[in-house]
């Protein structure tokens, strides 16, 4: 596969704060790449630098041979950008907004009209196309945003938090649409998001981005394996027993840490202890309700990378708890 987007040592500092720290990222042609990270990790700054809207402090970004800072116009000709909370001129209809974008891309009037009609159909907005954009709901704006990005027929699409604030059904439709843009049209898509579960379903590869640095990058399964090879096994256990489970299981050789939560026990060990765990619970007269080996799942991968990073930076002394809990939300939902 051929690389279409490459950054080398891309860095952006705001005063003392380093928003993006020596980012080396490669996105291959035709893939869906997910840039994942908590709020304030530097995702939006990265996308802005890719479009030449913000100048990097150091390093370069290249899309299809064009330098994103120096040849911003060539880059913007073939890269579509869907910002988070995309806005439209409220006193123009959805269709007029699209036509305006078409004209900015120097399309002919007929081409504009034809393309706008086709794209409105594709995103399912034909019925609302001639209403004023000011009356649109957030989901509609987002869909119109996708149509707007496609007006210039881009080879690369960059989306910033596309699923934020949309209801589950809307998210499902949007994800389907994005997936199709990649599989049917062969476009390269870069999605930045903190909503892991949604992104996991459609991404070929993901990059995990914490505090301006890319801490992991690869296919979801690949990342899972990478973690397993580090010799950490994580079991999630729900069981009923007469004796406290923690005491019971702590003595198993290899078990490093047991934490209790509402969902059950989380057992971290240096080897596979599933057999011993079931045996011990049964011997104590208990019943195993659920035993799950975690890993290979994006939430888990992310959580572990994030925890590692957090330890390295002494996370808790920083007021970024908001970002952290926002991240955990999808994981908790899944566990229920």
């Amino acid at each position: 596969m051929e690389a279409i987007l490459e950054t080398r040592g891309l860095t952006k500092r705001y005063g003392d704060v380093t928003a993006v720290d020596h980012l080396d990222l490669t996105v291959f042609s035709g893939e869906v790449f997910g840039l994942l990270g908590p709020n304030g990790a530097g995702k939006t700054t990265t996308t802005l630098m890719l479009l030449g809207l913000t100048e990097p402090t150091a390093g370069t970004a290249v899309i299809d041979g064009h330098n994103c800072t120096r040849q911003a116009l060539a880059v913007k000709q073939m890269v579509g950008y869907l910002p988070d909370n995309v806005g439209f001129y409220p006193d123009m209809t959805g269709r007029e907004n699209l036509l305006f974008t078409g004209r900015l891309n120097s399309l002919s009037e007929e081409e504009c009209a034809a393309r706008a009609a086709r794209l409105l159909e594709r995103v399912g907005m034909t019925a609302a196309a001639d209403r004023k954009a000011g009356t649109y709901s957030r989901g509609m704006r987002q869909r119109l945003g996708v149509a707007d990005v496609l007006m210039k027929d881009p080879r690369v699409i960059i989306m910033d938090e596309p699923t934020l604030g949309i209801d589950p059904e809307g998210v499902r439709e949007l994800m389907e649409l994005i997936r199709k843009l990649s599989t049917e049209d062969g476009r390269t898509i870069l999605i930045s998001s903190h909503q892991l579960y949604q992104i996991q379903q459609i991404c070929d590869r993901v990059g995990i981005f914490v505090r301006g640095r890319l801490v992991a990058c690869g296919a979801v399964e690949e990342l899972g394996r990478q973690l397993e090879s580090e010799g950490r096994y994580i079991l999630e256990l729900r069981a009923e027993a007469l004796k406290p489970l923690k005491e019971l299981l702590e003595v198993i050789p290899g078990v490093e840490e047991i934490t209790e939560s509402v969902e059950g026990l989380r057992i971290v060990s240096s080897r596979d202890v599933r057999r011993e765990v079931t045996a011990r619970v049964a011997a104590a007269g208990g019943t195993v309700l659920q035993l799950r080996q975690s890993g290979g799942d994006l939430d888990e991968i992310y959580r572990r990378y994030f925890e590692k990073e957090g330890e390295a930076h002494d996370m808790d002394s920083h007021p970024s708890e908001g970002g952290r809990s926002a991240f955990r939300l999808p994981w908790k939902k899944r566990a229920q």
Partner: peptide, 10 residues
């Protein structure tokens, strides 16, 4: 929110 959409055009 139209400024960044506008600025992203060529």
């Amino acid at each position: 929110g139209t400024l960044n959409r506008l600025a992203a055009q060529p």
